[in-house]
Design a protein around this nucleic acid. Structure first.
Lengths: 335, 335
DNA sequence: CTGAAAGCGCTAACAT
DNA sequence: ATGTTAGCGCTTTCAG
């Protein structure tokens, strides 16, 4: 399976009877190559099985078509959706994501930024976990199109695409209050590491506070969010709570779906005995027998928009520095 | 955003008072650099904010730490899991995945292989959708560690990691027969494009056939699998079927969970009135009020093992050419 | 342990 | 429309 030395530009040039630079131009689709030579070059390249070496190309000054992408996690389907949106758009434009997962660890995140920048990518997209000083400095000095995604609660270094996580929490609080709920509980996963989940909770509580309300019960489990965690967590929350809540606000839809399953298996009527609300607008929540009350985040759109920001900047177009893609309340039936 | 030229090796060398090659060695952690010079070099590099240029490094003969990864889809959580496993292992070893999504399109897949190879990655991992002749030729001639993942039903070009999809379908058929079911129906998503789903169906039917049985109803929907599709599809299948089946075998867990939801909302008792079986062993299925009967695929393990194959090969270790990670029947409660 | 020389394979910038 | 000349920034020889 080894074909040892790969053919180079100069071999193609020799075979086609033209200069290297002409081959280079032809293969990159430059306008200033005659149809005749283009054909000759293509034939030579094909017959040799020539494959461009973009390492050399990028080093010599040609632009890279790689975009560094740093995400905090990939177990959460939310980031898979974002990555999906990114990939689709990048691929359409002939670009490729180079992936790093920080695992919500600032040190690992810094290391990833450093490592990925050594490849001199054309751009960088990051869903920041928690940027260290060094991370910040690296990004500021990188001199490439840079998009911070997921939340618009802080000011981006270069460009930002996302939504207000705090606002989403607040919006759900308003909604639940308007629906007449008063005894509100919160059930969340690891919000120390997931600061966007923490921001939603903060927004939720702040709005409760303004209405003279407060959480009647709250439980935060030091683990990654999952359906199983939501299910088990709700059992725990209900057994520990001093009073039975009207509604439980979950840190996200995975957790909330788990809550719904707990209620199903315990015969707790939703929403009459207990209402349930989540966040993200995952497909699973909307396919439940009773669709989940939640707030849809536009995850794939965030990925696509982030890719567009990079691509626009690379082609010299003007780009908004901050794109707030908002969110959409889904009343559902569980609250 | 700074656009200044980045500091180069020679500037670090000048500042540290040594030669370029010494800086190069020091920064790559070569053993043959004295502690004293190592310190000088590190100080100089830090003070200049030096970042290696791996483009140049890889071109000059240093190995790349990029691994091309080609998947058919990212909307399916299965591939997100695989990618997650891959990423974790690669990152531990200081490698990065460069991603391509073929969208189950052989042409796009070929294009991706070609494009990603131009970066001269250290290895390539692919969950093949359907390799064209040209794709095959590219992979054979690439001369790099290559892993084909997901199924072991065909012989890999270089290395393979996965499980027998056909075997999984067959295994479930045996299980359902043993449980006493006879009127079996199948509900699937787009099996023209997803040939692994097709292989499971084939294995299932073949085993039914050997037992003198056949599908009493079958529906294949020309769409991507989803919970909603499973839910809606089951409604359609049941309304169209000439006889009520004992059990429905779904193309995967997403679909099967949708089926369970349909039953819940229609008051169909599971498994007494209708049994349900899936494939993948997704967390969501196991968190249902009644856990789903399914076969767990070891997705994250496939990703990790594939990464290990690449890494082992790169470090000269011997590597199995085919790793069958098998699968695990989960009896669950829905069948 | 350290260094000098010689490219890696390509493309920008000028030529013509 | 095509060619010539210089590197890009690093690492591989081979020396000491």
């Amino acid at each position: 399976m080894q074909r040892d030395k790969k053919p180079t530009l100069s071999e193609v040039a020799k075979l086609a009877g033209v200069s290297e630079i002409t081959v280079s131009r032809a293969l990159r689709g430059s306008a200033s190559v005659s149809g005749k030579t283009l054909l000759k070059v293509e034939k030579a390249a094909t017959s040799l099985g020539y494959l461009r070496n973009r390492l050399a190309g990028a080093l010599a000054g040609g632009a890279s078509n790689q975009v560094a992408v740093i995400l905090p996690s990939l177990s959460n389907s939310v980031f898979a959706d974002v990555l999906n949106g990114l990939e689709v758009r990048l691929e359409q434009a002939g670009f490729h994501p180079v992936l790093g997962v920080s695992n919500y660890d600032p040190q690992q995140e810094e290391q990833l930024i450093r490592n990925l920048l050594t490849w001199r990518p054309a751009g960088l997209v990051i869903a920041p976990s928690d940027l260290t000083k060094a991370s910040h400095a690296l990004l500021e000095g990188a001199g490439l199109p840079l998009v911070e995604i997921m939340d618009t609660d802080t000011t981006p270094i270069d460009m930002g695409v996302g939504m207000s996580q705090r606002g989403a929490g607040s919006r759900m609080a308003h909604h639940l209050i308007a629906r007449g709920y008063r005894r509100m509980a919160y059930l969340g996963h690891d919000i120390v590491r997931d600061r966007r989940a923490a921001a939603r909770r903060d927004g939720f509580c702040a709005t409760l506070g303004k209405a003279g309300l407060a959480l009647c019960a709250s439980l935060t489990l030091p683990a990654q969010s999952s359906v199983a965690l939501g299910r088990q967590g709700l059992a725990q929350l209900l057994s520990e709570a001093s009073e039975w809540p009207d509604v439980v606000y979950f840190s996200n839809d995975d957790m909330a779906v788990g809550g719904v399953f707990h209620c199903m298996s315990q015969g707790i009527a939703v929403p009459d005995s207990l209402a349930i609300a989540g966040f993200n607008g995952l497909e699973i929540g909307q396919s439940l027998p009773v669709p989940l009350a939640t707030i849809a985040s536009h995850r794939t759109a965030i990925g696509k928009t982030a890719a567009d920001c990079i691509l626009d900047r690379l082609s010299g177009r003007h780009t908004e520095t901050l794109a707030d893609l908002g969110f959409t309340l889904i009343a559902g039936g569980t609250a």
